[in-house]
Nucleic acid binder design. Sequence first.
DNA 1: GGCAACGATAAGAAAAACCTATGATGAATA
DNA 2: TATTCATCATAGGTTTTTCTTATCGTTGCC
Lengths: 307, 307
Amino acid sequence: MMNITLKQLRYFEALTRHGHFGRAADTCAISQPALSVQIKELEETLGIVLFERSARHVRLTGFGQEFAERARVILRSVDELGDLARVAQDRMVGRLRIGVIPTVAPYLLPTLIQHLNAKHEGLDVHIRETLTQRLITELLDGRLDTAIVALPVSEPGLTETALFEEKFVLVRQAEDADAPVPSPEGMREMKLLLLEEGHCFRDQALSFCSLRPVLPRDGLDGSSLSTLVQMVGAGIGVTIIPEMAVPVETRSAPVSLARFPGEEPGRTIGMVWRKTSPLAPHLQNIAEVVRDAAEALADRHKDILPA
Amino acid sequence: MMNITLKQLRYFEALTRHGHFGRAADTCAISQPALSVQIKELEETLGIVLFERSARHVRLTGFGQEFAERARVILRSVDELGDLARVAQDRMVGRLRIGVIPTVAPYLLPTLIQHLNAKHEGLDVHIRETLTQRLITELLDGRLDTAIVALPVSEPGLTETALFEEKFVLVRQAEDADAPVPSPEGMREMKLLLLEEGHCFRDQALSFCSLRPVLPRDGLDGSSLSTLVQMVGAGIGVTIIPEMAVPVETRSAPVSLARFPGEEPGRTIGMVWRKTSPLAPHLQNIAEVVRDAAEALADRHKDILPA
DNA sequence: GGCAACGATAAGAAAAACCTATGATGAATA
DNA sequence: TATTCATCATAGGTTTTTCTTATCGTTGCC
């Protein structure tokens, strides 16, 4: 009788995530038949069927679910075994999987990647850009090593460290450049454009205006900051964006910028990782590199919108 | 760059246990070069040396030790994955690794194996006979599924279940058959033959006589009950043996047997396994089979030394 | 009924693992 | 000091495993 192999568990795990042989095979970088065969072999070794194949769906059996949970733990432990080794040879080399939220990624990453390559030659940086919630899931699953998100996250299994503060600024039509900046309460009277549900920045903006979460209003929710700014330029309303996005997003639309007077709204961007990660000591160093990159970026653009 | 495989971890683990490429290779049922190559490949994958090879010894490096701990956990989890599957298809089949202490094994096993084969066809029973302490270690390491030992064991990670009680009986020269049976205190005046250090039965016998553990007295400690009885037959002293050993051990030596009057000394034999073992539900059944076997055995010999 | 999507199967090719034979090294021994 | 022995590493060729491409069979859908 055959033996269970890690390869089989990796393929199995991919299949549980995709529920689709073809796509799972793709992410494993093998052909669909290869995956089919390995899954079958795994099932034969175990003497139990793991997946229920219907013509339309591939679903885990009851036993498969229990199996999947344990398999995931094992795979993560094995990955951590590799991480452990990387830490032990005390320079940081090899793969580093970073997740970044969409309202930070496009602005920070170019600089960050440059800095990372400079400081840690031989580091193979993988980037994943998606919403906070998904990043946290993948982090806990061991599919990411760390994530850059807005703090606080308050997830028991994770350590967080602050990277930098960023203020929010008001974006209006170019003509309104000299109009007085509304107070937070005043914002409620205006047509405020927001990101779609799920973006943390949506909630942060709403909270500044002391607005309760509202249902999506068709056509008024943008899928990116870029979209929002274009809509403002077209005279549809006003919006708020984090200052880091300013240099990139306001270049190509007829909009004016303004800081809020008094207590400026803002958020803390930070890095999180699993408390148990053997990479922990190195992630502190990586966090330092991110801070440097953010600072360099802010410095470079400090004259676009002076404090 | 290569990937870590379970095979490599298994080989690695064997090598940590043996500290010797040749012997480790043997237990893995492969040639020594095959093992050498896999270990080297593992080290290259990790980018770290795991073993320090001197001409005489193979020892783990500092990192190797940490690595080994985690590897063992992983291997056990994988084995349990297999066990889980076996339990799920609700008949018990496949490998079952049972450890048995030396003062029980030779008498119980023949009957037990017979019963196991009858009740669980297709069960591949592996037996390991050694001292309690070692059995417990191997059990916690996941190298055994269960062990039959004297209770209590009182190990936090283990569950215990009683199997049967057995009394101890006095073995004297054949001529002394009609002499009065000494009291426990009386035993102290006699030349009491004991098993070597490490056997739990040695301690049980000493405790009955209210003797403090004594240092080995050259030439008077036997390595098996068989040896002790032969020594008694040769007139060197007296001894105590568990009643289960009576039919086998007293057949070939000129000795007489006697029960102790009043509160008879004895011990509880039981089965233990890891609390987390997925085999747990089945092990309860196995325990039942062991009880049956012990009862059948006692029944068969009940006239040799009536209660 | 025919098409499209999907997983299973088959045959041959590529990659990985293994075995036998042999080399290299260092400790024990003569 | 030379020799032997034990032990791990390396090399070449073979076997085993895994993978790819091609193809089939099924099922849902228009």
